[in-house]
Amino acid sequence: MGSLQGQNVVVVGGSRGVGRSIVEAALSEGATVLAVARGADALTELSWEASGVKTLVADATQAAAPDAVFAALEPDVL
C-alpha cells in the first residue's frame, strides 16, 4: 500500500475481519481512519487496540448512514 499520510479513510465493516485489517494498514500508513460498523462492542474493542482510530456505529443499509459518515469524516478514500 502506498502512503496514506494526510488522507481520510473510511472503512465500512471496519471492526472485524478484512475491514479491521484495512483499518490497521491505513493507520500504519499515516491516515486518519474512521471505522464504521453496526456492532458497538466490536468498535469499542477496536478503539482500545488500534490507537487513533475513530469509530462510528451505523448500519450501512440505512438511508441516514451516508450522512452520518460524512458528518464524522469526509473521506478521501472509502
Rank of each mutant, 00 (worst) to 15 (best):
E49N: 13
L78F: 15
A35F: 05
T32M: 12
S51N: 13
A71E: 12
G19M: 06
A35T: 10
V33K: 07
T44Y: 04
A60P: 02
S15P: 03
A65T: 14
S51W: 06
N8D: 07
S51H: 11
Q5Y: 03
E49G: 11
T44G: 13
A63L: 03
A58M: 02
G52L: 14
G30L: 14
T61K: 09
D67M: 05
V11G: 08
R20G: 10
V36M: 10
A72D: 01
A25T: 15
A35W: 02
E24G: 06
L43H: 07
E29N: 09
A64P: 00
A72T: 11
T44Q: 13
L56Y: 04
G39S: 15
T55P: 02
L73N: 02
G2W: 05
T61Q: 10
A50Y: 08
S51R: 14
V36E: 12
G39P: 00
R38K: 12
Q62E: 15
Q62D: 10
G2I: 15
F70P: 00
T61A: 15
Q62C: 02
L78H: 04
L78P: 02
N8Y: 02
P66F: 06
A63W: 01
T44M: 06
G52W: 14
S21Y: 03
Q7K: 15
S21L: 14
A26F: 06
A64Y: 08
A25V: 14
V18M: 14
D67K: 09
P66L: 08
D41L: 08
L4H: 01
P66R: 07
S47C: 09
E45D: 15
V57L: 04
A71K: 06
S21V: 08
V12K: 01
